[in-house]
Simulated scan of single mutants.
Amino acid sequence: MTEKYYIDLFEKFLCNQATDEEIGLLRSIIRSDRNIQQLLEDKLVASSTTMDDNTKRKIFGEIRKQIHSNKKTLSISHQKVLQWVAIFVLPIVSAFSVYLLTQNTDSSKNPTIITAQNGEKAEVTLPDGSLVWINSGSSLTYEADFNHKKRSVYLEGEAYFEVAKDEKRPFIVKTQSMDVQAIGTAFNVRSYNSEQQISTILLEGKIKVNVAEKETLLGVNQRATFDKYSKVLSTDNVDADNFVEWKKGNIYFNNQTFNDIALTLSRIYNVDIQFASEELRPMRFSGTLGSSGIKNALDILTLTSPMYYDVKDTTIILHHKKTVK
Rank of each mutant, 00 (worst) to 15 (best):
M1H: 04
T2Q: 03
Y5N: 13
Y6N: 01
T19H: 06
D20R: 04
L25T: 12
I29V: 09
R31Q: 10
R34H: 10
I36H: 09
T50V: 11
I59L: 06
E62D: 15
I63P: 06
I63Q: 00
K65V: 07
N70D: 15
L74K: 14
F88P: 09
V93Q: 13
F96V: 14
F96C: 12
S97Y: 07
L100T: 10
L101Y: 01
T105V: 15
S107E: 07
A116Q: 06
A122P: 04
E123Q: 14
L126D: 07
N135L: 13
S136M: 03
S136I: 05
G137L: 12
G137N: 09
S139W: 02
D145L: 05
V153G: 02
L155W: 04
F161N: 02
D166T: 04
K168D: 09
R169C: 11
R169T: 10
R169K: 10
F171R: 05
F187L: 08
V189K: 01
S194E: 15
G205V: 10
G205A: 11
K206A: 08
K208D: 04
V211S: 02
A212S: 12
E215I: 12
E215F: 08
A224W: 00
F226E: 02
D227L: 03
Y229S: 15
K231H: 11
V232F: 13
S234V: 13
T235Q: 04
T235I: 14
V238P: 07
D239C: 11
V244R: 06
N250E: 11
Y252A: 05
Y252C: 11
D260L: 09
I261P: 14
T264S: 15
R267N: 10
Y269A: 08
D272E: 15
A276R: 08
S277K: 03
R281S: 05
S286Q: 03
G290E: 05
G293F: 01
G293E: 04
N296G: 05
N296I: 05
L298Q: 01
D299L: 12
L303P: 06
T304P: 11
T304Y: 05
T304L: 06
K312Q: 13
D313V: 02
T314D: 09
H320W: 07
T323K: 04
K325Q: 07
